[in-house]
Amino acid sequence: MIDESTERRIEITIPPEYAGTRLDKTLAELLPDYSRSRLKQWLTNGDLTVDGGSPAPKTAVAGGEAVRLSVPETPHDAEVEPERIALDVIYEDDSILVLDKPAGLVMHPGAGNRDGTLQNALVAHDPALAALPRAGIVHRLDKDTSGILVVAKTFAAHKQLVEDLAERTVKREYEAVAVGVMTAGGHVDAPIDRHPVDRKKMAVREEGREAVTHYRVISRYRAHTHIRCQLETGRTHQIRVHMAYARYPLLGDPVYGRRLSVPKDSSEAFAGALRGFKRQALHAATLGLTHPATGEAMQWSAPRPADFEQLLAALADDAKTHGL
């Protein structure tokens, strides 16, 4: 039986049928709102006790032990300063927050980016998010990728969304502009790991983690293709790395792309539009998931930002001018 006298204090008596089971497994089953790794952390630092002590996670339980958990009042990300940065909220309830992130916004603080990030904005939007890992961020978009993402607002939602992402039940579709004219869609099934030399980059490597990207053609232009990509997995820079590996790198990608090449007989306006697009042409367009609290299937879309729309319009005008 769980006795929650406050939202942050939980008391449980381990049922006798768990006798002989490892403590970490028992705690994960009796406290399903929290991940096993977080329960281990709280057991280690004394926020979670068993009969007043802190036994090793692998200890076998006898049944009848008193478990007490005090979820730390000190925020998990107390060092992240709240900042009033405008957020484009698509949907919000007690469990999740769905946002349309603009290009140029860094996800969380790091070297050279201590403030002005989405995480700073989230803890200002809802101070309770500071108690969650990275203020509830469960998946990321690169700084210069625009579009839709979900943030967890509770430990239970965070745990469930992380599991859903791992089990590939979260639908994520992107739009992109690739360099080169594709004849058809396809998929890339190639493992991704850190680049062996440049540790800031990712690369297709045999010893990497499984990564699968599906892509299909939306429109073809003289030297580019507007495509829709769907992720099966969610590796760092996955679409950018996979499309470069397939020899169709994303337009404007400063890391994995080619040097800009303007098609012959291009107008000054079109050449300027290509040169003026200063980020990878990638937008997270659609997100579908099972709500972590209600079990309801939900889906949202984020409209293409103005710079992406202007790029597509310039590509279409150039194609029309040249009889395509």
Rank of each mutant, 00 (worst) to 15 (best):
E79T: 13
L251V: 01
E268R: 00
K40T: 05
I96C: 00
H283I: 01
V151K: 00
P303Q: 07
F308D: 02
I90T: 06
I239W: 07
V204G: 08
G257A: 02
P109V: 12
T117C: 03
D189H: 08
M182A: 05
A157P: 02
K278Y: 06
R222L: 03
A281R: 08
G136C: 01
A86Q: 12
A86M: 10
H125R: 15
E11A: 07
E173Q: 06
V61I: 01
L129I: 07
R68N: 03
A297R: 15
A103M: 00
T44I: 04
A60P: 08
R168D: 13
S261Q: 00
G110Q: 13
D100A: 15
E17S: 15
A60H: 07
D100F: 06
I227W: 01
E81L: 13
M298T: 09
D189C: 03
Y256H: 11
R140P: 00
S70L: 12
E167G: 10
K159F: 14
Q119P: 10
T44V: 02
P75Y: 05
E309K: 11
I137M: 02
A190N: 03
R134Y: 12
L99S: 08
T117H: 14
E309Q: 11
L129W: 12
A157D: 00
R172C: 02
V123I: 15
A56P: 01
A284I: 09
S266H: 00
R216S: 13
E29W: 10
A271C: 01
A111K: 15
S35T: 13
A297P: 14
A121V: 07
D164C: 05
Y34N: 13
Q280V: 02
G136W: 05
Q310V: 10
Y221S: 07
D189F: 02
A211F: 02
A297E: 15
G20E: 03
K278I: 07
P72W: 05
H214Q: 03
P32H: 06
S266G: 00
V181A: 08
D94G: 09
P249Q: 10
I218V: 15
L324V: 13
S35W: 03
D307H: 04
G276H: 07
I2R: 05
H76F: 14
T44L: 09
A152I: 00
E65W: 04
H195R: 12
E65G: 06
T236N: 09
V170R: 04
I14H: 02
V123E: 13
D100E: 10
P75Q: 09
D193F: 10
E81T: 15
T183D: 13
A128P: 09
P133W: 03
A244P: 11
E79Y: 07
A297M: 14
H242T: 03
V179Q: 05
